[in-house]
Nucleic acid binder design. Structure first.
Lengths: 121, 121
DNA sequence: GCCGATCGATTACGCATGTAATTTTTCGAT
DNA sequence: ATCGAAAAATTACATGCGTAATCGATCGGC
């Protein structure tokens, strides 16, 4: 059921716009990704098998659309990371970033605004 | 160079305590992980090849210790996630969690404290 | 209705991974 | 010096993934 790295790139393209044909996708993705068309087709096939996308016939070709929602994918990936590495809690992850000094003032401001919003629902 | 899921579990055990022999590790990890000893040995071998751990001879056996630091591993994993899914910025990840309503009041409080600390260095 | 272009489906293949059994090496004890 | 236990190294094997070529089906034009 898990989406691989390469498959995720296809999902991103479909989340950005759907439905799209294989050709459409190929055009969009080229530039980001140096794939042959048949590579993309393989990935589409695998995503279909996994049920992450669906295909609707449109004349002689198929139009693909996501079934798995992006927000759900984000949730799974994020949750998995903080479960595996941060005991399931978000704050330690943020603390980690701050310890690495990889938080720019903008980030801090944005976080602060978020928190404020969370406190006054 | 990348550490796999199973390998990461071995690393966690070594980060928790080092150095340890394969037997030590096996004892510690059993209960969490249903591995045969030889599975663990395979993983140790692969980690050695990858340079993530080192081994020092101690009589007839080896004592293993981490070379890769946990904080670096955390940094790589976390950065990779937010790069792939959140345009490289932390705030959107936090926003995602809040949108999922998976932030408990404790978490919010903890985050708030963190932010405060970041503002007054 | 047949032919070729255009899609999708099938097959391929090397490498990583999860999991483990088997083989080889090496000490320590006799 | 030899033998056996214990540890490490090698080999194994199925599955998933990245990448792609090729085969097969199908539709539109003649």
């Amino acid at each position: 059921m898990s989406i691989s790295e390469a498959e995720a790139k296809v999902m991103e393209a479909l989340w950005a716009q759907a439905p799209q044909s294989a050709e459409d996708l190929f055009t969009r993705i080229s530039g980001e990704q140096e794939w042959q068309l048949s590579t993309l087709k393989t990935l589409l096939g695998r995503l279909l098998t996994k049920g992450a996308i669906a295909a609707d016939k449109d004349g002689r070709r198929f139009l693909y659309r996501p079934v798995l929602e992006r927000s759900q994918y984000l949730a799974e990936q994020s949750q998995s990371l903080i479960d595996r590495l941060f005991s399931g809690r978000l704050a330690p992850l943020v603390a980690h970033f701050s310890a690495q000094r990889s938080l720019k003032p903008d980030d801090v401001a944005e976080l602060k605004a978020l928190i404020k919003q969370l406190e006054q629902p």
